[in-house]
Amino acid sequence: MKFISLFSVIFLVSCSNYGQLNYIVKLPKSIKENSGITTIIDSTVWFVEDSGNDNILYKVNHKGQLLRALVVKNADNHDWEDLAKDDKQNIYIGDFGNNDNLRKNLSIYKIPNPETVSGSEIAAEKITFYYPEQKDFPPKKDKLLFDAESLFYFKGHLYIITKNRSHPFNGEAFLYRVPAKKGNYAAEYLDVFTAKVGKKKANITSADISPDGKTLVLLSNGFLWVITDFRDDQFFEGRVKGIDLGVRTQLESVTFTDNHNLLLSDERSKKTGGNLYSFSLQQ
């Protein structure tokens, strides 16, 4: 019996290895493929799920309880991949997942602060865009550069960071921007970020910028880049610090809670993931 008890303890510890992340809670089972996260008020989080799921915005508290499920009207969940928030608490849903680089209907949905909306539905405005650099649908294998899973808001614009699916893989992630208002836009190419840490770690799955606009974070599977000391939106010319989070679950979303602290989440996969975590940039 003692052997069984000791084995159980070792097993539980090994299954609870969250690296540098601080475990908060297991997310509700109804949110299996969370892909975007943002916060508005303390101790609650808003989530969306990616392709194949409903056009719903979920509110969860830090106890893992599902508090609200808002149907987003005037919107389709083709492949929702990230959430962003502006200084008026409007939320933006990035519907630009594009694994095969085939899509011509890339969208971002803008909704008002959901904390101010009663009922079970919320109306969205639609921002559509395209990448002028993409000429073929799909491009050749070495030009599969137009998937995206990352979105953040900064000074009136929405910034999109692409996810590289090229063969051979070169680690490049493009930075684009579009106005944060209803319309159809040619996304403006700004810069390229190149991560040289291997394909899985280099693919950017989420991004966010601090409330004071001084720190940008990029997330991948187990890796975090912290970018500071940039001017205006010349983000990639700033100081870049890479942090190995020490966890290899499918981390899909990150958001700031203040200028120094983050919340992160991963997708549920068998017996791992589906959790909410915190991480301090000051640790």
Score class of each variant (00 low, 15 high):
His157Val: 06
Pro179Lys: 03
Lys155Gly: 11
Asn184Cys: 14
Phe154Ala: 01
Pro168Gly: 02
Ile160Thr: 02
Ser166Glu: 12
Arg177Asp: 12
Glu149Asp: 08
Leu151Met: 10
Ala180Met: 06
Leu190Lys: 08
Ser150Ile: 06
Lys181Val: 12
Phe146Asp: 08
Tyr159Gln: 06
Leu175Arg: 03
Leu145His: 13
Glu149Trp: 04
Leu175Thr: 02
Phe174His: 14
Tyr185Trp: 13
Pro168His: 05
Gly156Thr: 09
Leu190Asp: 04
Gly183Pro: 15
Lys181Ile: 11
Ser150Glu: 02
Pro168Trp: 07
Phe174Thr: 10
Glu172Tyr: 05
Glu188Arg: 09
Arg177Glu: 10
Tyr185Ala: 10
Glu188Pro: 12
Lys163Trp: 04
Arg165Ile: 02
Ala180Val: 05
Asn184Thr: 15
Lys163Asn: 07
His167Ile: 15
Leu145Trp: 15
Lys182Cys: 04
Lys163Glu: 00
Ala173Glu: 07
His157Met: 10
Gly183Cys: 12
His157Gly: 01
Pro179Gly: 07
Ile161Met: 08
Gly183Ile: 12
Ser150Arg: 00
Leu175Gln: 05
Gly171Gln: 02
Gly171Ser: 01
Arg177Gly: 05
Phe154Gly: 00
Leu158Lys: 02
Tyr185Leu: 11
Ala186Ile: 00
Arg165Gly: 03
Lys182Ala: 15
Ser150Tyr: 02
Leu151Pro: 00
Ile161Trp: 03
Phe154Met: 03
Thr162Tyr: 02
Tyr153Asp: 00
His157Gln: 13
Phe174Trp: 12
Tyr189Cys: 03
Pro179Asp: 06
Ser166Trp: 11
Ser166His: 10
Phe174Gln: 13
Phe154Tyr: 12
Phe146Pro: 12
Ala187Met: 04
Ile161Phe: 07
Leu190Trp: 10
Ala186Cys: 02
Leu190His: 06
Glu149Ser: 04
Pro168Ser: 04
Phe169Gln: 01
Phe174Gly: 07
Ala180Glu: 04
Phe169His: 02
Lys163Arg: 08
Ala148Leu: 11
Arg165Ala: 03
Lys181Arg: 13
Lys163Ala: 06
Lys155Ile: 15
Thr162Glu: 06
Lys182Ile: 12
Asp147Ala: 14
